[in-house]
Design a binder for these strands. Structure first.
Lengths: 167, 167
DNA sequence: CTCATGATGTTAGTATCTATCACGTGAACC
DNA sequence: GGTTCACGTGATAGATACTAACATCATGAG
């Protein structure tokens, strides 16, 4: 937060942690993982199947993401700082988007468990991708406004505007 | 395509091109740009305002993306190979998603030009993000099936499943 | 107490990317 | 026709992320 991501070397991190750089790489595959590690995708996958299955896919996925975000941002200041870092740093932004891809796949796997229908898997993937896109926009706005608005309301506003019906 | 992205060094590329590695870096900011360069975002931004404005945002954006893809994949074999490389390589995947982010911003800028309303900008951003997510899924499926299905039909199927109404 | 196992350190190396200075070619201008 | 200037290119040195291989140390089981 003080010096920015690029200006902080892995050696700096290792020194601050009192270990060698090699030890850092043993615990984190890449420098980006130092910032980006979370178990968001596992949480989301665990949540999505607890919901009633009689609502549209996008609604179920959206509810899942809201619930998961609510848990994730319990430590608000930390997650705000992390988001700011991610937004400001190209490498982190790109990797974060790729981790959203992992979340998407976890959601799809949970939603289509047991079924082998490629068409429904395709549709679940599209719905998850769209919802994650909307959720991402809400998160960015939340960070841009310093965490002041209610994240859930931002998400609902974005969802309603995109899908044409309330969540 | 022969050796994979990671196994091909910038020096290899420079040698094949008959120039020094330094010259490669003068023309492409990063190794990823050697693969990912395109003017997709500019094309999309130029197209989105040619459409009638009386349809929902997501429909206008979706039509824009379809039109832009149709142009972009004119050289089908090339774009298939490029997509396969992008899907298989984590660094390329991540960067490509970040470039989608650039496309999204270009779309939002074109759609909200002149207006200064932060709420409508927020909604345009959400709609663009959702549509790009859906489009990305269609593209991945298209590549997975070796470009055999019609990309437009894949996109329409994903769109209809996600938004609950046909394009 | 011994020893095996796992975590850590050291060293050497590769690859991406940057900064800096030098060189050569071609075009504009006198 | 000659000079100069801009620009593309090259060579070198260097920072940093990451990997591989081997050495070392601590901890806990037997």
């Amino acid at each position: 937060m003080e010096r920015g991501y690029d200006a902080t070397t892995v050696n700096d991190v290792a020194e601050a942690a009192g270990v060698s750089a090699m030890t850092v790489y043993r615990h984190f595959a890449t420098k980006e993982d130092l910032v980006l590690y979370d178990d968001f995708d596992q949480q989301a996958a665990a949540t999505v199947n607890e919901l009633r299955a009689d609502e549209p896919l996008v609604v179920r996925i959206a509810r899942t993401l809201i619930a998961t975000y609510d848990q994730a941002i319990a430590d608000k200041e930390f997650h705000l700082a992390r988001l700011r870092l991610m937004i400001a740093t190209e490498a982190l932004r790109a990797r974060h988007l790729d981790s959203q891809y992992a979340t998407q796949e976890a959601l799809v796997a949970a939603l289509t468990a047991g079924s082998e229908d490629p068409a429904s898997e395709f549709q679940a993937r599209a719905a998850a991708s769209a919802c994650l896109g909307v959720a991402h926009i809400a998160l960015l706005r939340w960070a841009a406004e310093d965490g002041e608005p209610d994240l859930r309301r931002l998400f609902e506003e974005a969802f309603t505007a995109t899908f044409g019906h309330p969540l």
